[in-house]
Design a protein around this nucleic acid. Structure first.
Lengths: 213, 213
DNA sequence: CCTGCAACTGAACATCCGTTTAGAGTACGA
DNA sequence: TCGTACTCTAAACGGATGTTCAGTTGCAGG
């Protein structure tokens, strides 16, 4: 049953995750998926009942992978070495996780970008996790106080997700993938600097402003 | 020719920009566009030769509108009142521009999200504009110095575009559209605070870290 | 008036889509 | 050995899609 390499159903699911992440569900046909998985179009429907059923299975799989990944990266933080983590250790751990599931981030990007109810639920749960984590860090004196915790949490979350969504464009202008082992250090350094030291300085007579929307 | 309301070709183009921005090109049919514009499917092809031709015309139109909008919002900054602009004035001006072309931002979102060569070119030009603006502001003492200007410019740009891309999700969790007259004040305040005062505080013994990818 | 040209429509066309169907091959227990 | 259940394929079906085509309208210029 689960013999040599992978079940045909699993091969179909993985191929679909790949293609959906790259092109979006609407631009990927059942025949594309079948060809990528090396099976007939009929088998795709046989295993997943319909294209929507396959999409649901891929969604479930991706959310499960994401949950595992987030759990794995927050567990050791609270267990063994509580305070001794340097940023490079953090980023290295992330880069490892990302490299282990190369199809997850592109698909997460699609989940966020394609809209719909599952997108809203996913974003909301990430938002609440971020807000709670910031609240805890604020109590621990690691994060400054603010008048609008919701807006700040949403802003920080959007920034992280923005790097996931615009990963390809960032790679293009910086010359390095911000989710690669090399790039994540450079990106994380810039992020940490922007959040730790002021970017905009108070002017002499008026107030600071921005240039782009 | 350009009589009562709008040319049929223009109506088709505007309807297409609407639908493309909402659902993405692949999910919108020529018949959908024709119905929204109140014409026959054949006329769509007659005017734009093909669906791809229509897409190209819509892209061109959107980029032209974006260019106008960015030009209009950087002109008065250098002309009349050079330093007396408050943040609320800035955001109000932006909210006005956005409200004037309600279909532009959703389509810009699609341009960024759908990928392709035009996406890369658009992002790169925005990146260079951001980097140059930051460089000028740094010379004027309005922005702090950094070791990696490219990474910082990309980061700030990605954050702004993230709000455009995830606008709907932000609206959902904050209860207010960050691109609306009300919401843009709240969002802009949080952004300005995060960039002007430290978010992450230096811990006593170790270094700060983050919670989300 | 009428000739020509552009806007426009309704119907048709070929193709592609998701899905169905009939059946071949195989494993496994009775 | 038979039968049953399961995986899988090839072919086909109905419907939707982008595009084409023949033809009608309306209008500008000689």
């Amino acid at each position: 049953m689960r013999s040599d390499d992978l079940t045909a159903a699993a091969k179909i699911r993985d191929a679909a995750m790949n293609l959906f992440g790259e092109r979006g569900e609407a631009s990927v046909t059942v025949r594309d998926i079948a060809a990528a998985a090396g099976v007939s179009p009929g088998l795709v429907i046989h295993h997943y009942k319909s294209k929507d059923g396959l999409k649901a299975a891929v969604d479930e799989r991706a959310l499960s992978m994401l949950k595992d990944m987030l759990a794995k990266s927050s567990d050791p933080q609270a267990s063994a070495n509580s305070t001794a983590q340097s940023m490079s250790q953090m980023t290295d751990a992330f880069a490892d996780e990302i490299a282990q599931f190369p199809t997850l981030l592109p698909y997460l990007r699609r989940l966020l970008v394609d809209g719909g109810d599952s997108t809203a639920a996913l974003f909301r749960s990430m938002f609440e996790a971020t807000r709670d984590a910031l609240s805890r860090m604020q109590s621990a004196g690691l994060v400054a106080r603010t008048n609008d915790e919701d807006a700040r949490a949403a802003f920080l979350l959007v920034n992280d997700l923005g790097a996931v969504i615009l990963r390809e464009q960032i790679t293009d202008v910086l010359g390095v993938d911000p989710m690669s082992p090399d790039g994540i250090v450079r990106w994380g350094t810039a992020v940490l600097e922007a959040y730790s030291e002021p970017v905009y300085l108070p002017p002499k007579k008026s107030r600071p402003n921005k240039g782009k929307p």
